[in-house]
Nucleic acid binder design. Structure first.
Lengths: 204, 204
DNA sequence: ATACCTACCTAACGTTCGTTAGTAACCCGA
DNA sequence: TCGGGTTACTAACGAACGTTAGGTAGGTAT
């Protein structure tokens, strides 16, 4: 029991550090943040952080690794909950936007601090990011095959959709005009308008 | 004449420094790049950089300031060259995408290194960026008023369009599958599909 | 020939960086 | 009450940071 409690508290301390690091890295960037500044925000000494993490780099990787986990599991659950390419794309886009609003800071870091990862850690993260992007590409492809989408270039369209939604993390504000749900709804509409096959023969 | 030559060479040296800084900051980030590393790439000593720029911060600001200049003038010229809300939005989007492919690195920095600016410099840059965004908002508004666009939220749509196109700077590659022109064409089509008013009453 | 300016250099400044070693306070089971 | 593990601390390491002072080689103007 003692070890379980200890483990819990240890995990909780690590969690506190990660949360503080997310907030700090988001504002000042990884290289612009020092271990001493991070520690100060936690009312600790910098050296104490090394009890929980082996290095500064390990902290960054832990943040990005977990964020990629959440993205992959989240989009998997969202897509599995409905049927058909259109409903699934709606669900995937909706999840992606909501995640980038709710988990704004870590989502932002997962894109902006890739360059601060060591080579090995970058490879690990990019592999999972590719996997995530593949979900969207395959949804588009299914829709095109089923005749409900009309897309001239699946790869490009997937990138366009993802970067558009990812951008939410850069400008979203809790105290802003629009709630995450509203933003997600409108993004879903915009995106579906641009990929849906038009019944009449107007496009391009 | 001597002074003119001197001035030219001085400006050329400053230009070389800016170009090297753009490449370096892009890869390592502002705080991840040192004056010594920057100098090494130029076969200089770090101290010599201070003959051309007052500080590291001044180099970053010079990059972002000029990029904002290019964006504002470029979109102004693009929009002025054609008539009507739809043609103008096409032109603006086209310019924005092409700029973020051709001037990829500095365009990337103008978004990713805002947080590395001092407060005063940030204010200057943000003022101009707001001005740039306003161009797109007013194009959308004109189109809605003219009845050619159908947009539920102009502000949100403008942000969506801009972040989508800005994203090009993060993934574009010279040696990639698609030329900037092709990317611009497809982006223009996607965006216009999602803002154009549908003749029939299907949307939402 | 002299004086000056330009564009760089070497050397060093004080500070901060990530990280390690060694230690002290605390809590728990025995 | 004792001993061991947990979690933090203080102190310090060498390296790297942005920046400044002062000097020097070479071209130009007088």
């Amino acid at each position: 029991m003692a070890t379980i409690v200890a483990t819990h508290e240890r995990a909780a301390a690590a969690e506190r550090i990660l949360r503080a690091a997310i907030a700090l890295f988001r504002v000042r960037g990884y290289h612009g943040s020092s271990m001493r500044t991070l520690a100060r925000g936690l009312r600790m000494e910098a050296a104490s952080l090394y009890y929980h993490f082996g290095s500064k780099q390990e902290i960054l990787f832990a943040i990005l690794d977990r964020t990629l986990d959440d993205l992959l599991h989240g989009v998997g659950r969202a897509v599995a909950a409905v049927e058909g390419p259109e409903a699934r794309l709606r669900a995937a886009v909706r999840f992606h936007v909501l995640f980038h609003a709710h988990s704004q800071h870590e989502a932002f870091l997962s894109h902006s601090e890739l360059r601060s990862l060591t080579q090995g850690n970058l490879r690990l993260v990019l592999t999972r990011r590719d996997e995530y992007e593949r979900v969207f590409r395959s949804l588009l492809t299914s829709g095109v095959r089923a005749g409900v989408f009309q897309v001239s270039d699946v790869r490009l369209t997937a990138m366009a959709i993802l970067t558009m939604c990812t951008g939410v993390a850069t400008w979203f504000s809790d105290r802003g005009r629009l709630a995450p749900e509203s933003i997600a709804d409108r993004y879903v509409e915009m995106i579906l308008r641009s990929v849906k096959r038009c019944p009449k023969g107007s496009p391009s």
